[in-house]
């Protein structure tokens, strides 16, 4: 019984993780300008990896009959670093005057 429940949780987390990562990458590939593309990887991909790694933590805890939580370190690290790398790349783009799509409203630094 317990095994079925854990197997179900792991399978669901794996699928959700892969789906989030895929959607993040689709966003990176198809959105029209750089700043819009930035949104896919920072959120969806990070959460996707988070789900996958969480699935791994569940799976190995169950497989080895103990508590295996060191995968959480990766999640923790990714959730702390994702906003930082997004921020630095975005600043670099801003300083290089990367074009935004004409639909983008408001450019506060211009007035």
């Amino acid at each position: 019984m317990m095994a079925t429940v854990i197997e179900f949780i792991v399978a669901a987390l794996l699928l959700a993780g892969a789906a989030f990562a895929l959607v993040g990458s689709i966003g990176l590939a198809r959105l029209p300008d750089f700043f819009q593309r930035l949104h896919g990887p920072t959120k969806a991909t990070t959460l996707g990896v988070g789900c996958t790694v969480l699935a791994s933590a569940f799976y190995f805890s169950w497989l080895e009959g103990g508590i295996s939580l060191h995968e959480l370190l990766i999640v923790m690290f990714l959730f702390i670093t994702a906003p930082v790398s997004a921020h630095t790349v975005a600043r670099a783009a801003l300083h290089r005057h990367v074009k935004t799509s004409s639909r983008t409203r408001g450019e506060p630094w211009k007035h």
Binding site: K43, A86, H87, A90
Partner: peptide, 11 residues
């Protein structure tokens, strides 16, 4: 703000 709904802090 960077991690939540459709927003990224740029500067």
């Amino acid at each position: 703000i960077s991690l939540t709904p459709g927003t990224v802090t740029v500067e």
